[in-house]
Amino acid sequence: MEEPLTRDDWLVAAKTDADRRGLPELKPLLDALADATRALRAASWNRRAAGPPARLDAADPATRPDDPR
């Protein structure tokens, strides 16, 4: 069974892709996007979103499944 993609895996893969495409200057922007995505997933209202977020990192409170209440 394929392992889920962690956030760090995603960032490494995205930066590798940026290099492959000849866009190394994109890497600091990808870091900023990763920070923004972390904040988005950590937003308190996401716990009440319809459906759980995808598994990314079980230790990360921003990506824990929603409270079923």
């Binding site: 866009l23 200057e25 996007l33 995505t37 988005l40 937003a43 996401n46």
Partner: peptide
């Protein structure tokens, strides 16, 4: 222009699930 191109390229790395989260937000 280089800065606008980079901003547009960055958008290709936003994941669909996060776009949906943002719509919920």
């Amino acid at each position: 222009t280089p800065a606008v191109r980079l901003r547009l390229e960055l958008g290709r790395y936003v994941r669909a699930e996060d776009y949906v989260r943002a719509q919920h937000g």
